[in-house]
């Protein structure tokens, strides 16, 4: 839908990386798909952006993108944060592919912090940007030891972390990067998505790829794979729930962001997935605020102002 802000230049190799590097990354991806949830080391390259800007995701996307792809780039659920715009422009410049903000219209989606609300299909690929790929790192800093734990399926430590949550807060307080067991074998960090999104990973139709640039790891979940959030029998996993619908599209059971409306402290809760929200409004749904108060005055991007996600309980 959106027209690219920048246009394709042929100063770069297609998708920036040279063909040999892309092949190397694809081999890591294939290995990752063959062993769901297993972290495959790869020789991550320097990218023309700093770590923390999604260099891992960018390299994975660059390795799998083709001329016929339609790319969607999301950051915190939105297509128009500074990050999302910069990364989208990077691929427009280096590939000339079409881009879209519509989840349904995209064949390739790179994301940071969210999974779209719209269910994904078999002909789509979802690429996650991952800051810290090792779920055991929290309690075991030694890489040799965490590798051994994965190899021998010694995952007691993950539950130690959840135990500590319950002991301290009365419930499992982990709300982001909530650990999952993939294909009944590997414990995996789903990247810092809200645990609200965890159930979407379970048996997802789309291929899910994860890239960690600084830590040089790639992992994957093939379509239709079991992804189970870790928990205790007497403290079962529960995704966040919101006690109100989206203020402007009325959607329920979606992940909401709190948006500050003015300096008097008025606020509203709206879909974090801005494309989903827009689609619904186009279809004629409205929330209790009717129209989007942010549409009227120019307010900067809503998502850059989105503050807390703790509207949930």
């Amino acid at each position: 839908m959106s027209t690219p802000a920048t246009s394709f230049t042929d100063h770069y190799n297609f998708a920036y990386l040279d063909e040999q590097t892309k092949r190397m990354i694809r081999r890591a991806i294939l290995k990752g798909i063959a062993i769901p949830g297993y972290q495959v080391p790869f020789a991550a390259r320097e990218m023309p952006m700093p770590y923390g800007w999604g260099t891992g995701g960018v390299q994975v996307t660059a390795a799998v993108i083709g001329h016929s792809d339609t790319l969607k780039m999301i950051d915190q659920g939105s297509d128009d944060t500074t990050n999302a715009v910069a990364l989208r422009n990077f691929f427009v410049q280096t590939t000339g592919v079409n881009t879209t903000t519509h989840t349904k219209g995209a064949s390739l989606i790179q994301t940071r912090h969210r999974i779209p609300e719209e269910p994904l299909s078999e002909d789509q690929v979802l690429v996650y940007q991952v800051p810290i790929p090792e779920p055991l790192r929290f309690l075991e800093p030694r890489e040799t030891e965490t590798r051994k734990m994965h190899a021998l399926e010694e995952y007691g430590l993950m539950h130690v972390k959840l135990y500590e949550d319950i002991a301290r807060f009365g419930h499992i307080a982990t709300t982001y990067a909530y650990p999952v067991l993939v294909n009944e074998r590997y414990v995996m960090d789903p990247s810092p998505i809200p645990k609200f999104d965890n159930p979407k990973m379970h048996r997802m139709e789309a291929l899910q790829l994860f890239g960690a640039g600084r830590e040089k790891r790639i992992y994957a979940i093939p379509p239709h794979t079991d992804v189970v959030s870790l928990d205790f029998e007497d403290h079962p996993f529960t995704p966040q729930e919101f006690d109100q619908p989206c203020a402007i599209c009325g959607a329920e059971h979606v992940y909401l962001d709190e948006v500050i409306l003015d300096d008097q402290g008025s606020r509203m809760f709206v879909c974090s997935d801005s494309d989903y929200c827009e689609e619904r409004r186009t279809e004629g749904h409205t929330g209790h605020l009717g129209t989007n108060p942010l549409d009227a005055p120019s307010n900067g991007t809503a998502k850059d102002n989105a503050s807390s996600k703790e509207a949930c309980k």
Binding site: E154, G156, L157, H159, V160, Y163, I166, F232, D234, H235
Partner: peptide, 16 residues
């Protein structure tokens, strides 16, 4: 508590 419980969790105890 977690120090003592770790081995139990390691052998599959899943009841907090």
């Amino acid at each position: 508590g977690a120090n003592v419980g770790e081995r139990l969790m390691a052998v599959g105890e899943r009841h907090y």
